[in-house]
């Protein structure tokens, strides 16, 4: 069966102002495409049928990676994931996480901004139109029932971005441009734990830049997926910490991805870890604190109990990485 894209108009504005104007004039009918690797499959499955697709590829200032005079790493949102993975300017953990996204071919097309703005995913929405119609449309699909938790009133689609947990762990800032001008937000504040309304970003706002402050500590990203390639994360744990000479944690940011509709800061575990050395006992307690509130649903490759079980395991591995 050929899944063809629905008809749309493809626009390639050459300036941010032009792109914002197209988006805000479209009454929600226009969507942004970074590389299109997340958007086009959803359009082929008729999960979304925009009248206009706005490519950001021809806007020069959105591409590239540089270190500014204050030592911040600034990444343009249209930078291909492959370029992030190959960059020596970005923190090593960012390059490593980028290299674990999807497949080599997709990394050549997909963009940093596209991964950070990835739509939430779920077994009940990422299906062809016929299937969704036969089963009944879910909440995210305009229906009135969530097939993951039918008695609830929210959508449980999963935040599946690999880079958001890492950017949040590194205390990154995002720059967005919209019709009301430019704003900066901590990366953490962009995400909402709601499968439908998963971004604090209006339809006519464009993510333009990621700013990572200088980081001299240790950081890691641990990703669970069924295969070693192609797959989205089932659990993703990012950790960034400063340790003193004796291995005592001075500060740490710990983020668990892919177990909810947003990346989750594990603040209780962070508070517990500060002032402690990363002994096996401390890591075990931190892993418990980071995961006991986590409630993965049964809506991706593996069952929810497996993801729940694996969450402390991957937090443990991430914290062990920091110790090594």
């Amino acid at each position: 069966m050929t899944l063809r894209l629905p008809l749309f108009e493809y626009r390639t504005p050459t300036s941010l102002a032009e792109a914002v104007a197209i988006l805000s004039d479209s009454d929600g009918g226009a969507v942004i495409a970074g590389g299109g690797t997340d958007l086009f499959p959803k359009m082929k499955r008729r999960q979304t049928t925009p009248t206009t697709v706005v490519s950001l590829s021809a806007i020069p200032e959105l591409s590239g990676i540089e270190i500014d005079s204050e030592g911040n790493c600034r990444l343009g949102a249209s930078t291909p994931v492959a370029a992030v993975a190959a960059s020596e300017l970005v923190p090593a953990v960012v390059a490593a996480a980028a290299a674990e996204i999807a497949s080599p071919q997709i990394r050549n097309t997909a963009t940093l901004g596209g991964n950070l703005c990835l739509d939430t995913r779920c077994n009940y929405i990422d299906m062809p139109e016929l299937w969704r119609e036969a089963s009944g449309h879910c909440l995210k699909d305009g229906g009135d029932t969530c097939w993951v938790a039918p008695r609830g009133d929210r959508c449980w689609a999963i935040s599946s971005t690999d880079l958001a947990p890492v950017v949040i762990a590194l205390n990154g800032t995002l720059r967005l441009v919209g019709p009301r001008g430019e704003r900066e937000t901590p990366a953490e504040a962009l995400y909402r734990n709601d499968g439908i309304d998963y971004h604090d970003r209006s339809d006519d706002e464009i993510l333009t830049q990621v700013m990572l402050p200088p980081f001299g500590g240790r950081a890691t990203y641990r990703k669970l997926r069924r295969r070693g390639s192609i797959d989205f994360p089932l659990v993703g744990v990012a950790a960034a910490a400063h340790l003193d000479d004796r291995g005592t944690v001075g500060s740490i940011r710990l983020v668990v991805g892919a177990v909810a509709s947003a990346p989750l800061r594990a603040t209780a575990a962070e508070e517990f870890l500060v002032g402690r050395q990363l002994t096996d006992e401390v890591i075990e307690e931190a892993a418990r604190l980071a995961s006991h509130h986590v409630r993965p649903q049964d809506n991706t490759d593996t069952g929810s109990r497996y993801r729940k079980w694996m969450t402390p395991v991957f937090v443990t591995r991430a914290l062990q990485d920091l110790r090594a």
């Binding site: 069966m1 050929t2 899944l3 299109g36 086009f40 082929k44 071919q105 997709i106 097309t109």
Partner: peptide, 27 residues
Amino acid sequence: CDVGECGACSVLMDGQPVLACLVLALQ
């Protein structure tokens, strides 16, 4: 697969492998 999961449609664009099913002709 038509949705970027199998690699059967790989082609080189400026020497880099990409998936022809997820690249528009006009891109």
